[in-house]
Simulated assay, not measured.
Amino acid sequence: MLKIACFGQKGGVGKSTIARLVAVSFARTGSRVKIVDLHAKQRTCLEWSAIRSSQSVAPVIVADLFEEPARALHQTDLDIVVLDSGPHDAATVLSTARDVDLVIIPTATSRDDLKPQVEFGLELNRQGVDRSRLLYVVNMANGSETCIDEAKAYVRRHGFSVADTTLVHSASYMNAHDVGRCIAETELAGLNEQSDALFREVVDRIDRLAGGELLEDNSKRTTRLVDCNFKVAPGFHRAFKTAAALNRMSMRELLEVSVRSWISENCKDDPRIRMLCPELFPDKSA
């Protein structure tokens, strides 16, 4: 099960906004998704889910309130769980962040928001959460490119990654939430495309983490295969080179053919893979 958390120690910066976006976007691919609302008093995602259900908005998004996040992370009937925390759940967040695949930390552009959110990331890192598993998102931007660039630079100066996509401040986002929709389901195509772009960055980040490309500890890697971002044992490298020569192919060509064949055969039931590589899974009913 994939576990994604929208955490931070600052309120009002978009944790629930992004949690709902991620949940809906994965559900659209056919994944079994649940939002775990850790904010017992505010219950933003819990109430939003009820509104969505009452409005018959598809896909259905289930949200549950959990006082013990550890239980939420061990559900066996889900593909993806998205956690949304309140700003005052420090102990809960720190203990949970070590067990998730990715922590998304939203922030607005002001120093009042940036400073505590970056300090939160530094504390997570001190508690053993790899920096590569933290992704900052600039949210509620006022449209000033200078402010946005400065905010992203501030995050990067502290050694963290920040999404290329920026979410602007828009009443359309709030209107969508009011009727049980996420920020990729507004009435404005441009805003929806922006939200979809952010989701694709989240998926890309998860995929790169799963492949080990971003992890700090790469000590077990040995020989580079072709010019891709992974390495293999020397014996495999020699065998691969020989197979390419026998088939009169470059190593890159053989690698691409092999990976495509393996993915289409072994990952055809994974909705995330089908979304990322639709060309490998042609619609047979067409």
Rank of each mutant, 00 (worst) to 15 (best):
L2K: 14
G8T: 10
Q9K: 12
K10W: 04
G11E: 09
G11P: 08
G14C: 06
S16I: 03
A19L: 04
L21T: 05
L21V: 04
S25E: 15
A27Y: 02
I35L: 04
H39E: 14
R43Y: 05
T44N: 11
T44Q: 05
E47Q: 13
E47D: 15
S49R: 01
I51A: 09
Q55K: 13
S56H: 14
A58G: 05
A63Y: 01
L65T: 08
L65K: 03
E67R: 15
R71G: 07
T76G: 08
D79A: 11
V81H: 07
P87N: 05
A90H: 15
A91R: 11
L94G: 05
T96A: 07
T96Y: 05
V103L: 03
T107D: 01
T109S: 13
R111D: 08
L114Q: 07
K115I: 10
Q117C: 14
E123V: 09
N125M: 13
R126K: 15
Q127A: 15
R133N: 06
L135F: 01
Y136M: 01
A141D: 05
A141E: 04
E145H: 06
I148F: 08
E150P: 08
A153L: 14
V155N: 00
R156K: 10
R157N: 11
H158G: 04
G159S: 13
A163M: 00
S170M: 05
G180S: 02
G180C: 03
L188Q: 00
G190F: 02
G190A: 08
N192W: 00
E193W: 03
D196K: 13
A197R: 00
L198I: 04
F199S: 01
V202A: 01
L209R: 11
L209V: 04
A210P: 02
G211M: 14
G212M: 10
T223L: 09
T223E: 14
V226Y: 02
V232A: 12
G235P: 09
H237T: 10
A239V: 07
A243M: 11
M251W: 02
E253R: 12
V257Q: 13
S258L: 11
S258G: 08
V259A: 14
R260D: 15
E265D: 15
D269K: 06
P271Q: 10
R274H: 09
L276R: 15
L280K: 06
D283W: 07
A286F: 09
